[in-house]
Design a protein around this nucleic acid. Structure first.
Lengths: 244, 244
DNA sequence: CGATCTGTTGAAGTGAGTCAATAGTGGTGG
DNA sequence: CCACCACTATTGACTCACTTCAACAGATCG
């Protein structure tokens, strides 16, 4: 049966039955494809874990023992070069799945940006169950397909866009993803710091900061309190993101 | 039943039965997962098409009517910005599948670099069949997973590597992929021109050319005739690719 | 209230891009 | 078979977008 581990056990009593039934992100997540019976089987494998801000979820090179489903919080996924250069390959939000691109060991590290709650599944058990649930496998294939499309957009961004275009594209991506989760698409919230944004866009913190200022000065965005950014002129932002 | 269209019909008589049985790339391709019965069903959907060098396989934005399996030749997949900047997101070789990251319309264009032969499947029929063949779906999920891992490597390369590191990584990737297809891993063959390499690595042709010359001068590679490159010092190449 | 961390701004440097000329390479036809 | 053309690759000189290095400004917190 699903259990909580680490901090936060007593924050809210879980229903005696299946905790997944009441899950708020289920419709966006892998588990959204399952019927109640299948959901019960999957939840039987599941352990909920809390990871506090800046904590590690998994490490590049470690044996891939677990797969995760993000329920609350924001996760950053990154790869490192031996000399310490870092590339963030993605930010994960509630409903996102962590472990699609996994073989025997993790090819990337993942850390929590904010305090986060995740559903954790033993990889082997998950795969076994997947073999028995075509709908689960189809859903994962669909999610993998989406991630590939996003990865190719990111490849275009990194290979061919200027700093301004990268930042504008980034704002729009965050906005679109918030909308997909049913949250307001504007203003957007940026839980990650300038360094994370820089390492995601292949820039430096200084360039990110300067570009924010430029967009602010030209009234395309406005920086609000609490790491919120108002997209004041979405048309202009779209134009910039696509290179005019 | 499978048929040839366009040029090349008479090059070699197909067996009367299932042409896929004798296919040389089947073990590397999607179809490698199927039993003879399933293979026959899949091949019933299939049409072989020839695309000559520089010809178009599919166009970004077009309705995604077909999926493809590369049998012979090399394909480049790219995305364009409105002003014409191009990013090549991948090179496809025999055994590779074209259409994993596809929704209703193609999110990229694909062109043949050399004369190519492809197996073409109507997308809807392919998906229908996939629902009935768990092994096909599993295989596709595995291939999507591999592609995601490669995409993340490419993201690291584009975001954080220098020109030298990009070129060195590129040589090693081509070498590794040749080995995976059972071809010699050294010397490598580069069917694509400098412009393609530049647009794949987020560089210009000039920088690609200069970097080739640097690596040649430092005896890490040697340029042979017929677009072949000898990786003279693979250790040095690996060191460079990872940033020393 | 100082200490620490994150973000912003300034000044100077540089890796790769741009522009331009030259050198191969392969194809075609007289 | 060679002369010509078109195209791709190489090399050189110069420029620039972004980085690097450095100083400073806010926020957060014990």
């Amino acid at each position: 049966m699903a259990t909580h581990i680490t901090a936060g056990r007593g924050t809210r009593p879980l229903p005696d039955e299946n905790p997944c039934v009441a899950c708020e992100v289920r419709e966006f997540a892998v588990c959204g494809a399952l019927d109640p019976e299948e959901l019960a089987q999957l939840s039987a494998l599941m352990t909920q874990v809390m990871v506090e801000a800046q904590g590690t979820v998994l490490c590049e090179g470690d044996p891939a023992t677990f797969l995760f489903n993000i329920v609350e919080g924001t996760i950053r996924v990154h790869k490192l070069l031996p000399d310490g250069r870092r590339q963030i390959t993605g930010f994960l939000y509630p409903g996102d799945f962590l472990g699609l691109a996994v073989h025997d060991s993790y090819a990337y590290s993942a850390e929590a940006i904010t305090d986060s709650r995740l559903c954790r599944f033993p990889r082997d058990d998950f795969y076994t169950l997947m073999r028995q649930m075509p709908r689960l496998e189809q859903r994962l294939l669909g999610m993998a397909s989406n991630e590939l499309i996003e990865a190719q957009d990111q490849i275009l961004l990194l290979g061919r866009k200027t700093a301004q275009e990268k930042i504008a594209s980034f704002f729009l991506m965050i906005s679109r993803r918030a909308a997909r989760r049913g949250q307001p698409e504007n203003p957007i919230h940026l839980p990650m710091g300038r360094t994370d944004i820089a390492d995601f866009l292949g820039l430096t913190t200084e360039t990110v900061s300067r570009t924010f200022t430029q967009l602010k000065t030209s009234h395309v965005i406005r920086l609000l309190e609490n790491s919120q950014v108002l997209l004041a002129d979405q048309g202009a932002l779209s134009s910039i993101a696509q290179g005019q």
